[in-house]
Nucleic acid binder design. Structure first.
Lengths: 202, 202
DNA sequence: GACCGATTGACACTCAGTGCCAGAGAGGCT
DNA sequence: AGCCTCTCTGGCACTGAGTGTCAATCGGTC
């Protein structure tokens, strides 16, 4: 196995349990709603103890948003791989576009998005994740701006990264409102264009 | 009394208690930290019951952020009063600038800001408040863009408002990081200029 | 088989937030 | 004054999230 050179058994089972609990929980969420589903419900449905649940997920929100942390890392990698000829905005947008999304069918994605934008605690956590992405992506943008990657004095990179993520968020909300009838990519570009005053070249 | 044409007694006492509890709680927060202060602590220090506390504040975070909701309304009024000659960005920035901030001395403001940016649950709530501001300000910006104020199909106004607030947030964080050594206003303008690609005229 | 390390479930605990209820005051009406 | 009503209040019990602890267990290694 190229990916897993024979990891410890429990590392694999742990991963399997993690995925299984997440799967069970998500179907409960989509069935009765996020807030109406308690952790006891999830633990019971997944066949583990309440206490063990918290060994796999720090919070209930992490079931839905846990992937986002890993995704931020992927975006960072993609961003660093962007050619140096691309300016900050273009590089960010392309990095976001080319980072693979977790593979779900569109109907499920839409359902999850509706849950996400409609549940305050989830929305809050998702915004926090964006802050993490921000911290992850800012150094590379600073580099592209010709600033030292750890220069916290210059807030231009922070502003750019934050606004791109904000545009992504606004576009995501519009996409959800429109029941996914429009292309998310187009919506993001529209948002960015509105902010920058002219059409953004991709 | 021009402002209060003899309100009911309990309306006034209620306001007084609200302010007193908030004052007491804030001093506890600044003394021992937000998370280390329980609601029982606050209730005991303020001389009310735990149950009554929740009749004045929905959550612990509301003590710190409660004003923000009212402030959003003030900003909206200010925004609508901006001359029609100002474009969306200028109007937004001026509205933010001209809305009076709650009067505290700078040292206290900085201390509160540090608490705000350093406490996850407070940060999350503060981002949620920004979402409320967004919903409040977007209709007027749509109007300035020549779109029907309730046209949810056009996300340009949403993007602009969201990004201005994001810039405000980024600037606020930088201001806090720098111990308030730089002017918040300048920081906001720097952030906006970085996003828009050129200096914003105020 | 014996040892080591990670995992597990059970129990107890803290803290935020809510529902319910009975009592106390203020104000209005007769 | 007496009565009625409305609100505020405190107390109690409850749910639900999240954490600390501990003894038991199970996989893997020597």
């Amino acid at each position: 196995m190229p990916t897993t050179p024979d990891q410890k058994l429990w590392a694999r089972t742990r991963q399997a349990v993690h995925a299984e609990v997440a799967r069970t929980a998500m179907s409960l969420f989509l069935e009765r709603g996020f807030e109406a589903t308690t952790i006891d419900d999830i633990a019971a449905a997944a066949g583990i103890s309440r206490r063990s649940f918290f060994r796999y997920f720090g919070t209930k929100e992490d079931i839905v948003l846990g992937d986002l942390a890993a995704r931020g890392e992927l975006i960072r990698k993609e961003l660093e791989a962007r050619p140096a000829t691309e300016d900050a905005w273009t590089a960010l947008l392309n990095a976001l576009r080319h980072t693979p999304r977790p593979g779900q069918d569109d109907a499920t994605t839409l359902q999850i998005s509706k849950m996400l934008y409609g549940t305050p605690s989830l929305r809050a956590r998702s915004l926090e994740k964006h802050l993490q992405w921000q911290a992850l992506l800012t150094p590379e943008i600073r580099r592209r701006l010709g600033v030292a990657p750890d220069d916290e004095h210059d807030l231009r990179a922070d502003a750019i990264v934050a606004c791109v993520l904000t545009c992504l968020d606004v576009a995501g909300e519009a996409w959800t409102r429109s029941d996914g009838s429009q292309s998310l990519e187009d919506l993001v570009l529209t948002a960015v264009a509105a902010v920058r005053g002219s059409a953004a070249d991709a």
